[in-house]
C-alpha cells in the first residue's frame, strides 16, 4: 500500500510541474510587456528601460525565468494584488474555505441523489423508473449551471420570496440565528451545483451497477438464496462504487467551473468570484494564483481518488 502511495505521488508531482509549465507558457506567450508604458514614455531614456529589464531578469532565457517563477510560487511568494494591495496568498486563504464548504456540501447532496436513484434504476433497467430517472438526469446535466441559478432565483427569491439571492459573509446575528441565516443563503448555491453533479453521477452509478450486476458471483449470491436486498447492498453496490470514485475525481475540473459560475450568480465570496473580479479588474497576480490553486486542488483530488481506489480495491495496489 505504501509503495502504491509512493507510485501515485510520483505521478502527481510531474503533473503539477506540467501544469506549472502550461501556466507559465500561457503567461510568457501572452502579448503585452510590463514595461510597455515606459517604452512609450519619452521622458524615460532607453538605457534606463534596459537597466530595469536586466534588473528584473526579463531578458534572461525562458527556462531561467521559469525556474525563478516556480521557486517564488513554491516559497509562497505569490506577489500582491494590484487592486486590493493585499498579499495574494492571504486573499486566497481568506476566500478558500467558503468555496470548499459550498463544493463539499454540493458533492454530498449529489451523492445523496445519485446513489439511491442510480441503484434503483439499475435494479430494473428499462423499467418506467429507470426511464424517468434517465430522462431527468439528461435534463439535469443539460441545464447549464448559470441558467439553473437564475431559475432558482426566479422561483425562490422573486416568486416565493423564501430565500435571499445574495450571499452575505457578514451576518450580524449570533447563535442559532447565525447558523439558520447561513443555511438559508447556502441552499441555492448548493442546490445548483448538487443537482448538476447529481445528474451526471446518477448515470455513472447506474452504468457501474449494470457492469457488476451481471457478473457470475452475483448469480452465485442469488442462487444460494440470499434475499435480493442483501445481494444488491452487500455484493453489488460495494463493488460498483469503486469506479465511481475515479469518475467523481474526473468531474472535479467541471465542478470547479460550476462553482465559479455559481459563486458569481449568488455573489458568494469564494475563490471563484475572486477570479472573476480579478479578470474584470486586470489583476494578473490574483488570476495566476487562483488558476494555480485550482489546478493544484484538481491534482490533489485525483491523488486522493487514486488512494481511495487502491484502498477499496486491493488488487490495484499490488499490480
Amino acid at each position: 500500500m505504501l509503495q502504491y502511495f509512493a507510485r501515485r505521488l510520483m505521478v502527481a508531482i510531474p503533473s503539477l510541474l506540467g501544469i506549472s509549465v502550461v501556466l507559465f507558457t500561457v503567461l510568457a506567450l501572452a502579448p503585452g510587456d510590463p514595461f510597455e508604458e515606459l517604452a512609450t514614455n519619452p521622458a524615460i531614456p532607453p538605457e534606463v528601460r534596459e537597466n530595469l529589464r536586466t534588473q528584473f531578469g526579463l531578458d534572461d532565457p525562458v527556462h531561467i525565468r521559469y525556474l525563478r517563477w516556480l521557486l517564488a510560487m513554491l516559497q509562497g511568494d505569490w506577489g500582491y494584488s494590484f487592486v486590493s494591495r493585499v498579499n495574494v496568498d492571504d486573499l486566497i486563504l481568506q476566500r478558500l474555505p467558503t468555496t470548499i464548504l459550498i463544493i463539499g456540501s454540493s458533492q454530498i447532496l449529489a451523492l445523496l441523489i445519485a446513489l439511491p436513484v442510480g441503484i434503483m434504476a439499475a435494479r430494473r433497467p428499462y423499467s418506467v423508473f429507470d426511464q424517468v430517472a434517465n430522462t431527468l438526469a439528461f435534463i439535469g446535466f443539460s441545464l447549464p449551471t448559470f441558467f439553473t441559478g437564475l431559475l432558482l432565483i426566479l422561483l425562490f427569491s422573486i416568486a416565493l420570496d423564501w430565500l435571499p439571492f445574495v450571499y452575505r459573509a457578514d451576518i450580524d446575528a449570533t447563535g442559532w440565528r447565525w447558523w439558520w441565516e447561513h443555511l438559508r443563503q447556502s441552499i441555492m448555491p448548493v442546490l445548483v451545483l448538487g443537482l448538476f453533479q447529481g445528474a451526471a453521477l446518477t448515470r455513472f452509478v447506474r452504468s457501474a451497477m449494470l457492469d457488476v450486476i451481471r457478473l457470475d458471483y452475483v448469480t452465485t449470491a442469488r442462487s444460494k438464496g440470499l434475499p435480493e436486498r442483501t445481494v444488491i447492498n452487500r455484493h453489488v453496490v460495494r463493488n460498483a462504487l469503486i469506479p465511481v470514485v475515479t469518475l467523481m475525481a474526473l468531474q472535479v475540473p467541471a465542478v470547479f467551473g460550476g462553482a465559479i459560475v455559481t459563486e458569481q450568480i449568488f455573489r458568494v465570496p469564494g475563490i471563484g468570484s475572486l477570479l472573476i473580479s480579478a479578470v474584470l479588474a486586470n489583476d494578473t497576480p490574483v488570476i495566476m494564483a487562483v488558476t494555480f490553486v485550482l489546478s493544484v486542488l484538481v491534482v490533489l483530488c485525483n491523488l486522493l481518488a487514486d488512494i481511495i481506489y487502491g484502498w477499496l480495491d486491493p488488487r490495484i495496489s499490488y499490480r
Binding site: S15, G18, I19, V22, L23, V26, L27, A30, P31, G32, L250, P253, A254, F256, G257, I260, V261, L275, I276, V279, N282, I287, M288, V290, T291, L294, S295, V298, V299, N302
Partner: peptide
Amino acid sequence: TDLFLSLPELPLLLLIIYLFRDG
C-alpha cells in the same frame, strides 16, 4: 492527455482569453 484532463477548464479559459484578447 492526462495532464490536460486534470487542468481546470474554466479558469484557464478565463486566463487565456484575458491575456490574449487585446493582442
